[in-house]
Computed example of a mutant assay.
Amino acid sequence: MAGGLLDVLLGRIALGGPLTVADYMAEALGHPRFGYYATRDPFGAAGDFVTAPEVSQMFGELIGLWGAVVWQAMGRPDPVRWVELGPGRGTLMADAIRASRTVPGFVEAARLHLVETSPVLRRIQAATLAKAAPPHPPLWHADLSGVPDGPMILVANEFLDALPIRQFERTAAGWCERLVAAGPGGDRLIFVLSPPSRRPPLLPAAVIDAPVGAIAEVSPAVIGVIDAIGRRLAGTGGAALIVDYGHPRSAPGDTLQAVRGHAYHDPLADPGQADLTAHVDFEAVARAAGEAGARPFGPIGQGLFLERLGLGARADALLAGASPAQADAIRAARHRLTAAGEMGTLFKAVSLQHPGLPPPPGFA
C-alpha cells in the first residue's frame, strides 16, 4: 500500500517537479485510494494515536453542555446546525448528545452535520451515533460549504492540525520554500529547497526577521477554514469551539511530524501509512476569524478550559459509583486531559462567535 502512494508521488514529481509540503500532506492524508484517512481507523490503542474523546467520556460530555449553553445564549434557535469537523469515530458527538439531553429543547433543535471525507470513518460514525439515538439523523458533508445556512454551533477537535502546511527556511540568500523531491536513485523522498524569494506569501510578520536556519510554517488551508467559519458565524449567528495543539503566538519552528503506532515516524517514509500533523498557529486563527467578522476568545489551555466547564464535578460524580479499577481510570483520564505534562497545556481551546453573543462558557 505504501509503495502504491510512493509511486504516485514519484510520478507527480517526475512530471511536474518537487511538491510543496502542503501538496505532499494532502496526498499522504487524503489520496482517495492510498491516503491515510481514506483507508483506516487510526484512533485508539490499536491505531496510531488517541484523542481526548477516546481518553474519557467526560470530554465530549462537557463539550455537549458547552454547546447547549451557547444555544441558550443564542436565543434557542430551532433548528440550529450542530456541526463537527473531523468527527473521528463519532465518540465526541455521541457523548455530547447524551449529556446535552439534560438541557430541555437543545437536542430536539439540533441538526447534526458531520464534515468527514473518509468512507471508513463515516461508517464508524454512523454506527456510533445510531446508539446515541439523536432525534434527527446526522448528515455527512465533504466540507463546510455543504452545511445549510442558519445558526450554527461548530466543534473541531484535532482537526486543524491535520490540514496541509507550507514550510519555508531562512537561508543566507533569503527565504526558500521547503519542497518534497525524489531522492538519489528515484525510490524515496527527500526535502529540498526552492530558490530564495524576498518574502514568501502569507509568512507572518513576527517571523520575517528570524535567523538563518529557522523554519517558518503557514497554512492557507487553516486560514481558509477559519475564514469560512467566521463569515458564517458573523452572517447567520452562532459559535465555534476549536481544540487542538499548537502555539499561542506566531513563531518560527519546524512542527511537521508523523506518528505511526503511537511513536514518532519519519514524515517522508511510508507515505499514506502514518499520520501527518503540524502545530496550529492560534494567533493566525484569531486574526483570520476577526478579519472574517467573528469575535475570537482564547486560546487557553485545554486543562484550564475543561476545569472551568466543571470537569472536577463530573469526575466526582463518576467516582461516586465507580469500582476501584474504574476510579483509577477516571483519575488517570482527568490527569491526562488536564496535566501540564500531558494534554493540559499543549492542547488549547479557542472559541469564535458572532460579535453580539456574550463570552462563551470557559472563556469569561
Rank of each mutant, 00 (worst) to 15 (best):
L6E: 06
L15E: 15
G17Q: 05
L19V: 02
L19G: 05
T20F: 06
Y24L: 07
A26M: 04
E27Y: 10
A28F: 00
L29I: 13
R40C: 13
A45W: 03
G47N: 14
D48K: 08
A52G: 06
P53H: 07
L62C: 09
I63N: 01
A73C: 01
P77K: 06
D95Y: 02
T102M: 15
G105R: 07
F106E: 14
V107L: 03
A109P: 15
A109K: 13
A110P: 13
A110N: 13
R111T: 12
P119C: 11
R123Y: 00
A127Y: 02
T128W: 00
A132I: 01
A133H: 12
P134M: 06
P134Y: 10
P138G: 02
A142E: 15
P148M: 08
M152T: 15
T171V: 03
E177Y: 15
V180M: 08
D187N: 13
L189I: 14
V192F: 01
L193N: 13
L193H: 11
P196G: 04
L203F: 13
L203W: 12
A205E: 15
A206W: 11
I208G: 00
A210H: 10
G213Y: 08
G213P: 09
I215Q: 04
I226N: 03
G230T: 00
R232Y: 12
G235Y: 15
T236K: 05
G237T: 08
D244T: 04
P248S: 04
D254E: 13
G261D: 07
H262A: 07
A269M: 03
G303L: 00
L304K: 09
F305M: 12
E307A: 09
R308L: 15
A313I: 04
R314S: 11
I330S: 07
R331W: 06
A332F: 03
R334F: 02
T338W: 07
A339I: 07
L346I: 07
L352F: 05
L352I: 02
P360W: 02
F363D: 02
